[in-house]
Simulated scan of single mutants.
Amino acid sequence: MTGQESLKTLPLGDLHQHAGARFGGFAGWSMPITYPLGVMKEHLHARQKAGLFDISHMRLFVLSGPDCEAALSKSCPLVPADIAVSRSRYTFLLNPDAGIIDDLIVTRLGADRFMIVANAGNAAIDEAELKARAKGLHAEIEPLDRVFLALQGPAAEAALARAGVDTGDLHFMQGIEPRENWFMSRSGYTGEDGFEIALPGADARALVAMLLADDDVEWIGLAARDSLRLEAGLCLHGQDITSATTPVEAGLLWAIPKPLREGGPYVGAEALAAAIAKGPARRRVGLKAEGRQPIRAGTQLMDADGEPTGEVTSGGFGPSAGHPVAMGYVRADLAAPGTQLIAEIRGNRVGLSVAPLPFTPHRYRRG
């Protein structure tokens, strides 16, 4: 069996084929990479109107039961009691060394019910970890079989309304169950206002048909999703953050409540507190190259004296920014914006500078 044949197929795979998608492998799935519109126009369409993404490769879990708060407290650096119904939080599954097993979005749906959205490549590991950390508690981890769609861009809310989907008064990082077996949150990974909707297959096909009949909506592939999230300064697990990366060096401590930075019941608490006290040896930064040539992931970075100082973890061209954009890790003393660095690409040295993140401003609808 070839690698392509062994990839999982999206529930709406036939729709993507009919739309003329070009497919490629990602996290074990056959994913639409681009459509006939092309990556540049797809990217700009999502920024200017509304882009429709099939993110069904991602995994949703329902955490429920009388001990679900305790299970979540053991699993993640969160204070579940502080999360109001319909509120979402960005958080992490950490290993004992405070490395990021995965980054998650957790939404409270009721007194004893949470929705957890996990990354595709980590779904099996996440499920095993969540169940292990809930062992002995009255809490159940249930994987959901749903189509998962994202509609992103300034026209997303209006397009959903025209398709008969009432988004209510949702603001950024809020989520609800608007219909039976539906989950909808005002969130996404593009830096734009938008929504993520998990729903049964038949409902998804009907919704997709209505959305694509709207002149403001176009299918957007994985390539543009990557350039959108990179411009927005958002991490991709497996590249910008991994199980060997701590939230400290990744610049993600803002997602951890201050009392839990000194310890707590969650796995990795002691190591995280030690990492905070010590300070990071390296930091995640934005990187802007001179000229028009993109600097790709894996490119080694040097300081002005030619000494190794870090590595690019994500890189490409930013269609909205109008120049190459990248993220990576550099020695902590070189992480200040404006610091000059050097990348060596196929024997040529390219200058680049540390740049503030994000490269394009976030346009979330906040309350």
Rank of each mutant, 00 (worst) to 15 (best):
A277T: 12
D303L: 07
C235Y: 05
V354W: 00
D240W: 02
G233Q: 00
E129G: 05
I33H: 14
G3W: 12
A326Q: 04
R22L: 12
A335Q: 00
L334N: 04
A123K: 13
R331L: 05
G38S: 12
P257W: 06
S64R: 15
L160G: 01
S75P: 11
V354G: 01
A213W: 05
A274L: 12
D169M: 12
E177Y: 07
R284K: 08
A289P: 00
V217Q: 00
R363P: 13
G328F: 02
T245N: 06
R366W: 13
A326G: 06
Y266W: 09
V79M: 14
A250P: 00
L212M: 09
G99C: 08
V62Y: 13
A281I: 04
G175L: 07
V208F: 00
L104Q: 01
R365A: 13
R282S: 11
S88N: 07
F359S: 02
L160S: 02
L352R: 01
W29L: 08
P247F: 04
P280L: 03
M327E: 02
Y266H: 14
S73I: 05
G28E: 09
P308W: 03
I125D: 14
A150S: 14
M115C: 14
T9L: 15
D67G: 01
I220H: 00
D126G: 08
E218S: 14
A224L: 07
R261F: 04
E5F: 09
M58Y: 04
A50F: 06
H362T: 05
A274G: 10
G110N: 14
A132W: 09
E311D: 10
G351D: 10
F61T: 06
P143R: 08
T339L: 02
V354E: 03
A224S: 13
L260W: 08
F183C: 12
L12T: 05
G306K: 01
R108F: 08
S227Y: 07
D216K: 06
E5Q: 15
P280Y: 01
